[in-house]
Amino acid sequence: MDLGFIIGQVFNGFSVASIYILAALGLALSFGLMRVINMAHGEILMVGSYVAYLTIALVPGPLGIFAAMIAAFAVAGLLGGVLEVTLVSRLTSRPLDTLLATWGVSLILQQAARDIFGATGVSVTAPAWLDHTILIGGQTLPVTRLFIMAVAVAVLGGLAAFLRSTRIGLLVRAVNQDRPTAAAMGVDVRRVDAAIFALGSGVAGIGGVVLALLGPVTPNVGQSYIVTAFLVVVLGGLGSTLGMTIAALMIGLFMALSQIFVDVSLAQVLSLLFVILFLQFRPQGVIAVRSRALDE
């Protein structure tokens, strides 16, 4: 087999994994805190994509993409915050019902996008400096893909710094480790929940901007990534950010490398099989949080 082709697939794997990281980060953060999954997270990606479309139409220049990221982060974060306060925070004791209610939100957001922007896609013109390829080690690599990886690394780094060295980050880690004790110490756990939910949604907004660079923006653009993003969270283990990152790389590379041998739909089936088999050995996911509590 051609070595260059394999290296190309590894590169593709990392690039797909970067998208999964941006899509699943918000899910993993709020799953770690509240044990709920937001099924409308894919539509928050979609909102980010449409914000990118609008912003780049308003701010054409080479820096339009960064303006789009800031705008998408703000809009998606706000949307996530509203969703948390009005719906999710009322249902945290019933995680399965949260899945259903947020699925309802996702249907409404999809249909709203269809009514506003039409069912056919709109396309975002990437700035000229992204629109070429470079040659590294005998491989022609699209700059867009490298840019996506850089965004994922920057977001992960920024988040780690935020959680490590800000006051809100400290509160988040406290609630994550021991919710009742943190509450007893006077931490307003509800506000921490809402803040993290909004932050995670903002990251998904940035993910949406990145998706807009790869193809047309449709009302279903989030759906095509979100089911795998859910699997990434499951594989990562109890909302651990590190576990989620490793899981995203595992699934991204597995999908890309299995496509050397089989077509893309079979690769999807195999990656699900891979997750199920992996969970046979580590049912807690990649990173298991040690706890003496009996119920997880």
Binding site: L96, L231, V269, I276
Partner: peptide, 29 residues
């Protein structure tokens, strides 16, 4: 395979959803 490793709740729901997606994709392809 799921319940012997005590996989339940949200995890189980998300894995079954991925199963539905994989099944439909396979049928189409």
């Amino acid at each position: 395979l799921m319940f012997r490793r005590r996989i339940g709740g949200t995890y189980f729901a998300l894995i079954t959803q991925a199963l539905g997606l994989a099944f439909a994709t396979l049928l189409i392809s």
